[in-house]
Design a protein around this nucleic acid. Sequence first.
DNA 1: GCCATTTGGTTTTATGATGCAACCACACAA
DNA 2: TTGTGTGGTTGCATCATAAAACCAAATGGC
Lengths: 155, 155
Amino acid sequence: MVKRTSFEGDACPIARSLEALGDWWSLLIIREALFGVRRFGEFQNKLGMAKNILAARLRSLVDHGILETAPASDGSAYQEYVLTPKGRGTFPILVALRQWSEEFDDRPEEIATMLVDREKGRPVKKLEMRAEDGRLLTPAETTLKPRPSSRRRSA
Amino acid sequence: MVKRTSFEGDACPIARSLEALGDWWSLLIIREALFGVRRFGEFQNKLGMAKNILAARLRSLVDHGILETAPASDGSAYQEYVLTPKGRGTFPILVALRQWSEEFDDRPEEIATMLVDREKGRPVKKLEMRAEDGRLLTPAETTLKPRPSSRRRSA
DNA sequence: GCCATTTGGTTTTATGATGCAACCACACAA
DNA sequence: TTGTGTGGTTGCATCATAAAACCAAATGGC
């Protein structure tokens, strides 16, 4: 079996995340879901993707506990796809991707939207990494430590 | 042409990021590069991936300005792949992916490592979103605004 | 209640991407 | 100069993706 390699058993949490949302469409589906999109056709219209792969992705996201199907909300007999807490938890990932693009994109003038603080209408600050005590950390000021009571493949 | 859809012209900064690092391996290559990996063979050993696709990914990352080739560092005639500032700028994305996994993974005991503050050895705090004035923001307290002087596709 | 249309998919088929193994050129070492 | 490790490329088999056709159930119009 040649199969596209899976990171499911991998001990690295980054690889594990990518297992669930590392393909081309999943994060964009989640993005739409965060904007309130719930119906199959609505995802299909907004994203312009083939219906078969949309169906496959939705199924995969449900399997990974990121979306769940709800029996309706407007009385219709159709079902809806809504984010679970795990799904809503991807928000910082999307913000990080967005900010990276805003900061480093070669043609920033092509970017259509800004993420702003709703109250003031001002751009959100860059995500920053802080220590437990609140000290601002650079990548170099961090390091990886093996987890307590766990002896597995490195990362 | 059926071509795997490209997000290159898309106006959404998230799609634009995914264009550069949305495949299975790119972020893992960057992860290794952040740990100091520079040589082809070293990437290949650590990631256990096929050499042809490693070569393709490295080329793509160089094309996107995330890595650049440097003529050596230990006197050898071989070349090295080093992160550009744009490449190092992906750090928050990796941290966000890591924290998502730490918080929501179904089998957290399989995760081998923790990201810690090097000085104190304590886990890094969760990334948080703040307004310009420092107020902590929830996703619901943010919204998207069209960029000044730019009129393109939505989302 | 009946028919046309919309919604939410599945199936089929073509093509691109991935994975593995074999191969090869160059650097370096003896 | 012969050998070995590094850094790839090439071919081939298989998998994933994309587009379009198809289809059943739900809905809307009358």
